[in-house]
């Protein structure tokens, strides 16, 4: 794994890391990738892809409104709010 990839991943995950830490993560992540890569050596010719090991499907619930507003409890967790909205540093994707 390249240092550049570690930095890219950190950026996507909004993690701030310094150079030493990046090098350490590079070593650790490389090992993890190598470990997982062992799976690639198994011959899977003709074996269908599997997302889950269990022979069960997703349980479903009826289409009913069961929750009432928990706005007050949620707002109590927010560092900033106004007019019922959570306030966050300005994010704008505009032309």
């Amino acid at each position: 794994m390249e240092l550049q990839e570690v930095e890219q991943l950190a950026k996507l995950a909004r993690l701030k890391i310094d150079q030493d830490h990046a090098e350490q993560l590079r070593t650790e992540c490389s090992k993890i990738v190598a470990l997982a890569s062992q799976l690639a050596s198994v011959d899977t010719e003709g074996v269908p892809a599997m997302a889950h090991p269990h022979e069960v499907s997703q349980p479903l619930r009826p289409d009913e409104v069961t929750e009432s507003s928990c706005k007050d409890a949620l707002m109590a967790l927010a560092p900033a709010q106004e007019e019922g909205l959570f306030l966050v540093p300005k994010v704008i994707e505009e032309a």
Partner: peptide, 12 residues
């Protein structure tokens, strides 16, 4: 996201 009138913040 609402971007107006939150003194430099965005409302969610």
């Amino acid at each position: 996201s609402l971007h107006e009138d939150f003194h430099g913040m965005s409302g969610i």
